[in-house]
Simulated assay, not measured.
Amino acid sequence: MSLFWRIFLLNAAVVVVAMALLLGPYVTVSKHVRLGEAEVVVSGAAVMLVINALLVRFFGLAPLKRLSQAMTTADLIRREARPDVVGAGEVADLTRTFNSMLDRLESERAASSARILSAQEAERQRVARELHDEVGQTLTAVLLQLKHAADRAPAALGEELRLAQETTRGSLDEIRRIARRLRPGLLEELGLASALRALAAEFTVPGLAVRHRIDRGLPPLDPESELVLYRIAQEALTNMARHSAATQAEIRLRSSAAGVVELLIRDNGKGTGGAPEGNGMRGMRERALLTGAELSFGAGPYGGTEVRLAIAITAGSTA
């Protein structure tokens, strides 16, 4: 039934009931209205208005309210349940149209995000290659020149040149570290497990211990899924190191009999505290959408934060 006829019939039902009461033997009105009769009429009108408001609110416009709430809370980077299509008519058609629009927008956003992230990865590889090949080689040459000069300089000047050597060597190590983070060479060469172990070692510093537990015999993943897993682990550890004040963290990679590979990043920090999601979390959600993975954030078993990513293995996945 359409919204128009639903509201019309509800109102008509209230009016018919009121007329039946007035025409029946239970309610009578004299030619000269008395106070008691006026009170009856006013009370009846008030009751009709209340009943009409309740019927329209909870029966006539309830589907529109549910649809309005769904429109208000819709988020294209979260896989949420669609509002149910109830009955037929304009509201049902509107709900179906809204669900179809969400499906189309999610598909378009996923395709757009895939192109953007692909371009980002290509740019990261270019920058990492330039840092490693050009800046790295230049600093290596500077190191050799400093060593050559230090070996032939007087003692006092030689000490200063050696300090410059150490500073240059530290800068070279930092550039190589940045290049590794921009372009995970271990992921391409040795696979996801080795890359995650190296990532745990990279974030292990004084005051923060990062452990890794990676199951053996994990099912093969396609390169895109492996990159998504690695980048989400990297972003989660970066957020943890910056904001959580944690002293312990864990990377867990495991598979289930249901054909799902699950990544867990846990820490014992202060947690999110109900803070809204920042760009880092939304970026992780966008990456998860690329592979149809399920990503969730919550409280960890150690009182900190837990990031959970589950990727279903498809029959066409390759190592």
Score class of each variant (00 low, 15 high):
F4S: 15
I7W: 07
I7Q: 09
I7L: 15
L9D: 11
L9N: 11
L9M: 13
N11F: 12
V16P: 05
M19S: 12
A20L: 14
S43M: 08
V47Q: 11
L49K: 06
A53F: 12
A53W: 10
F59W: 14
G60V: 03
L64W: 11
R66E: 12
L67W: 07
A70D: 14
L76M: 09
R79W: 00
R79K: 10
E80H: 01
P83D: 03
G87K: 00
L94K: 13
T97A: 14
N99I: 00
S100M: 06
M101E: 10
L102W: 11
A110I: 15
S112W: 13
S112H: 14
L117S: 05
R126N: 11
V127I: 15
A128Y: 03
V135G: 00
A153T: 07
A153L: 01
E159K: 15
R162G: 00
A164P: 04
A164W: 05
A164C: 06
T168M: 03
G170K: 13
E174F: 10
R176P: 03
I178N: 06
L182Q: 09
P184S: 10
L192N: 08
L192I: 11
L196M: 03
L199S: 05
A201D: 11
T204N: 01
V205W: 05
G207N: 11
R211Y: 08
G217M: 00
L218N: 01
L218R: 09
P220D: 09
P223F: 01
E226P: 04
Y230M: 02
T238S: 14
H243V: 05
A246D: 02
E250D: 12
I251P: 06
S256R: 13
A258V: 01
V260R: 09
N279A: 15
R285F: 06
R285V: 06
E286L: 14
A288F: 07
L289S: 08
G292N: 12
S296V: 08
Y302M: 10
V307D: 00
